[in-house]
Simulated assay, not measured.
Amino acid sequence: MSSAENPLFFTASVAPGGQQVDAWLNQPLLLSLEQGSVDWPSSCRNGTCRTCIGQLAQGQVRYEIDWPGLSAEERFDGYVLPCVAYPCSDLTLQRES
């Protein structure tokens, strides 16, 4: 299998502004944002406080916990908690106001 078929990271873009970072498959999206010098709000880092909430404009994430602190409607509308979300593709994350 080539690295193109099995990447180590994807690209995460932040909107507005278009800043891009490497989003590593083996770590939560929030850590990748911080390593890429993106100033993203956070607090609990376990999916309960919702400080880091954002909306996926494009892409997919997965969770390693059964149910992060999001309602079914929020998940349907593309909201994610980057502190516990792992990238599954290139993505664009929209900041909440």
Rank of each mutant, 00 (worst) to 15 (best):
M1F: 14
M1Q: 14
S2C: 02
S3M: 14
S3K: 15
A4N: 14
E5P: 01
E5L: 10
N6G: 08
P7V: 03
P7C: 03
P7D: 00
P7R: 00
F9T: 08
F10Q: 03
F10Y: 06
F10H: 06
T11E: 11
T11Y: 10
T11R: 07
A12R: 06
A12K: 04
A12Q: 06
V14T: 11
V14M: 11
P16F: 04
P16W: 02
G17K: 06
V21M: 02
D22R: 15
D22Q: 14
D22P: 13
A23F: 02
A23P: 01
A23I: 05
W24V: 06
W24R: 08
W24K: 07
L25R: 14
Q27H: 02
L29D: 01
L31R: 11
S32A: 06
L33D: 01
E34G: 10
Q35D: 15
Q35G: 13
Q35Y: 12
Q35K: 14
G36I: 05
G36E: 08
G36Y: 10
G36C: 07
G36P: 04
S37A: 15
S37G: 13
V38F: 07
V38W: 04
W40H: 04
W40A: 04
W40F: 08
P41I: 06
P41G: 08
P41E: 11
S42P: 10
S43M: 13
S43L: 14
C44E: 10
R45D: 05
G47E: 02
G47K: 06
C49L: 06
R50H: 11
T51S: 11
C52P: 07
I53K: 14
I53S: 12
Q55H: 12
L56G: 00
L56P: 01
Q58Y: 04
Q58V: 03
Q58W: 03
G59F: 01
Q60D: 07
V61N: 01
V61C: 01
V61Q: 00
V61M: 00
R62W: 10
R62P: 09
Y63G: 00
Y63K: 03
E64G: 04
E64Y: 09
I65M: 09
I65G: 00
D66M: 13
P68E: 07
S71W: 10
A72N: 09
E74D: 04
E74V: 10
R75K: 12
R75A: 12
F76H: 15
D77M: 14
G78T: 00
Y79T: 03
V80I: 09
V80S: 02
L81I: 03
P82F: 03
C83L: 05
V84P: 09
A85I: 05
Y86I: 00
C88W: 08
C88E: 12
C88D: 15
C88G: 10
S89G: 00
L91E: 02
T92N: 04
T92Y: 04
T92D: 05
T92I: 05
T92K: 09
Q94L: 10
E96S: 12
E96F: 10
S97W: 15
